[in-house]
C-alpha cells in the first residue's frame, strides 16, 4: 500500500508549476461548496470537473486515479447504509423494528439524505485528491511558513515528513527480510515479527533523526529548518481557470438547491 504515495505523483504532475495558493483555493473552495450544497447534483458535478482537471491537466494515470477512490468509498458505503436505515421520514417504504430502541426504515427522506452524503463524499474526496496529486508537500511547507504557522510546528512537521520516508524505507526492507525467513507463517509468528519489526525500525529511525539534529547543530542551526524553493507567481490562465471553476460550481450549487433523490417517485 505504500509503494505509491501521492507525494510521488505530485512531484511530477502537469500542474506542478502552478501557484499553490490557486490550487489550494480550488480544492478548499470545492470542499466548502460540496458541504454547502443541499442537492446531490452539485457535488457530483464538482467531482466531474475536478476529475477532468486531474486527468487532462495534471495528467495523472486514470487507473491510479480510480484506485484512490476505492478505499474511501468502501468506508463511505457502510456509513451511508447506516444513515439510510436510521434516518427517519414520513411514509416509510420499508421498516423493521428489531429492538424497542432501534427502528430501521427506508423512507424518501432517508434515501435523499444518504444520496446527499454520498455525493458530498465523492465531491470532497475528488477535491482532496486534486490537492494531493497536484501540490507537493514541500510547496505547502512554504505556504505554511508564509501563513505564519508557529516555527516549532513547522519544524516538527518537517521532522515527521522526513521520518515517514525513513521509516517506510527500513520497514519495507526489514519486512521483506522477515518474510523470506518465514516470519509471517503463523499468527503468533506474525505478532512476534511485527513487534520486532516496529521496535527495530522505531529505534533505527530515531537514531537517524538524532544524527540529523546533531549534524544541524554542528552547523550552528538555531532550530529552524531552512527552506529553499520559491512560490510560483500567479499566472493569468490558471487564475482564470480557478475563478471559472469556482464560479460555475457555485452557480450549480445555487441552481440545483432543491433537487433531491427520488423526487419523481410518488
Amino acid at each position: 500500500m505504500f509503494e505509491e504515495l501521492l507525494e510521488d505523483i505530485a512531484q511530477s504532475n502537469g500542474l506542478r508549476e502552478v501557484n499553490p495558493y490557486l490550487k489550494l483555493a480550488a480544492a478548499l473552495g470545492a470542499i466548502l461548496l460540496c458541504l454547502l450544497s443541499t442537492s446531490w447534483v452539485a457535488p457530483l458535478a464538482i467531482a466531474l470537473l475536478l476529475s477532468l482537471g486531474v486527468l487532462l491537466l495534471a495528467r495523472v494515470e486514470p487507473r491510479t486515479y480510480a484506485k484512490l477512490f476505492i478505499a474511501p468509498l468502501s468506508f463511505a458505503l457502510v456509513s451511508v447504509l447506516v444513515i439510510l436505515l436510521v434516518t427517519g421520514g414520513s411514509g416509510p417504504l420499508w421498516a423493521w423494528n428489531p429492538l424497542p430502541w432501534l427502528s430501521l426504515s427506508l423512507t424518501r427522506e432517508s434515501v435523499g439524505e444518504a444520496a446527499l452524503v454520498l455525493a458530498r463524499m465523492i465531491g470532497g474526496m475528488s477535491a482532496l485528491i486534486f490537492l494531493a496529486v497536484t501540490t507537493p508537500m514541500t510547496d505547502l511547507f512554504l505556504v505554511m511558513r508564509q501563513c505564519r504557522l508557529p516555527e516549532t510546528v513547522l519544524d516538527l512537521a518537517m521532522m515527521i515528513y522526513r521520518a515517514i520516508f525513513l521509516i517506510l524505507d527500513q520497514l519495507v526492507q526489514t519486512y521483506q527480510a522477515q518474510r523470506m525467513r518465514l516470519g509471517y507463517s503463523s499468527f503468533g509468528e506474525s505478532v512476534r515479527s511485527l513487534s520486532t519489526l516496529c521496535g527495530s525500525v522505531f529505534i533505527g529511525s530515531w537514531f537517524a533523526g538524532e544524527d540529523l539534529v546533531r549534524a544541524m547543530e554542528a552547523r550552528c542551526s538555531a532550530g529552524k529548518f531552512a527552506m529553499l524553493g520559491r512560490i510560483q507567481p500567479v499566472e493569468a490562465r490558471p487564475l482564470l481557470a480557478v475563478t471559472a471553476f469556482l464560479a460555475v460550481s457555485a452557480a450549480i450549487v445555487a441552481l440545483t438547491g432543491d433537487v433531491t433523490a427520488m423526487q419523481g417517485v410518488p
Binding site: D155, L156, M159, I160, R162, A163, I164, L166, I167, C198, F202, S205, W206, G209, E210, L212, V213, G223
Partner: peptide
C-alpha cells in the same frame, strides 16, 4: 534532543 523522538513518533 526531543525533536527526533517527536518526529519518529509522528512517523510511526
Amino acid at each position: 534532543e526531543a525533536l527526533p523522538l517527536l518526529g519518529v513518533t509522528g512517523g510511526f
